[in-house]
Simulated assay, not measured.
Amino acid sequence: MSSESEMRRPEVSAGMAAARDRGVRLGRPPAPLPPSAARAVQLRGEGLSLAAIATALNAEQVPTPSGKGQWAKSSVKYVLDRHDAAQGSA
């Protein structure tokens, strides 16, 4: 690592902090909400737990957000949280 690149780091950090203060979203843009979110929200509205929703989505062979693997409580929570956030910003 050169000393020149080390000297620029505080400036970059300060610039990023200033951008965040202005409300600029840094990093990769969020992926679109998966179509499975609607089904997960529907099941949650019926009063099912995260585990029960995961079981139902797996039984219905609804694809996960990544399109791989099986639904778990954590992936259901991720989809529901993203849906709630999207509803809040709409």
Rank of each mutant, 00 (worst) to 15 (best):
E4I: 11
G23I: 11
S3I: 14
A18E: 11
I53L: 08
S5P: 00
S49Q: 09
R22I: 00
L57I: 00
V24A: 03
I53R: 03
R20H: 01
S75C: 09
T55H: 12
P34H: 01
V76S: 02
S49N: 09
T64I: 05
S36C: 13
K73F: 00
A40K: 04
E46T: 08
L80F: 10
G67I: 07
V76D: 03
A31G: 02
A90H: 12
S74M: 08
G45V: 02
L48A: 05
V79M: 07
K68C: 06
A90R: 14
E6L: 14
P32E: 08
E46P: 03
S49D: 05
S75Q: 10
A59M: 08
L26M: 06
A17D: 12
Q70C: 12
S5W: 06
Q87N: 15
T55Y: 07
V76R: 02
R25M: 11
R25H: 08
Q70I: 10
G23Y: 06
G88E: 08
Q87F: 05
K77I: 06
Q42E: 15
P63S: 01
M1N: 01
Q42F: 08
P65C: 13
G69F: 04
S13A: 14
G67M: 04
T64D: 04
I53E: 08
R9G: 05
T55K: 14
G69D: 07
G69R: 09
W71F: 02
D81L: 14
L80T: 12
W71D: 00
P30Y: 04
V12E: 07
R8F: 08
R25G: 06
L33I: 10
G27P: 00
P63E: 01
M1W: 00
S3C: 10
G27H: 01
Y78C: 08
E6T: 09
E60M: 13
S75P: 05
E6G: 03
A17P: 04
E46M: 12
